[in-house]
Amino acid sequence: MSPIKALFSHSNPLFKQFIFPALFSLGVFWLMFWTYYLSWNVDNRLLHFLLTDVVGALFGFFLMFNVLFVYPLLYFKGASSTQRMTGSFLITLFWCLKEFYRMTEFYTLGESAFFLLFPIQANIILMSFGFMGLSELACRCITRKYRKIELKVLTPLPLSIVIIVLGIVIFTLHDGGVTYFFLYNDLYKFFFM
């Protein structure tokens, strides 16, 4: 069997616990993304509404909160901590690369990269990490309660990630996000003008 075939084989534990759940989640996101964008061309009023307003809402929701679904999926499939973090960051990474490429149309590479600190993007990235920490705590709690495995729930790393991310997100959202937006603008001027 070729190495590629072996990698994607159902009997390969790596495929079952990491590759399949991660790619499946990315596929669902990809499908929602294109459904929303392509639905702009649909003329039928009802179908247009369903595809844009409904799928659009799901797409936005999944972009923000996907880690809360993907991380536990990977956890209970038996993925390692590195695999869990990598797999549940895949959608965010895809989104960041898409946004980066979009910005390179007429901004420099530096400016395009700096765009990832823009409030919406920054919060998507931050919340991904925060949800990883939160999911880890929740998964440990579920394992301890329902699988009756002695497991420490409140471990320092996920807990500190949750606390730090929560603090930063509160800061970025303070005052309706206005303070962070203008801080971001000032930083842009400092670095690029």
């Binding site: 509404f49 307003d53 809402a57 936005g60």
Partner: peptide, 10 residues
Amino acid sequence: PREADNWVGV
């Protein structure tokens, strides 16, 4: 307008 949807703003 017909082409408007609730999420164009984001």
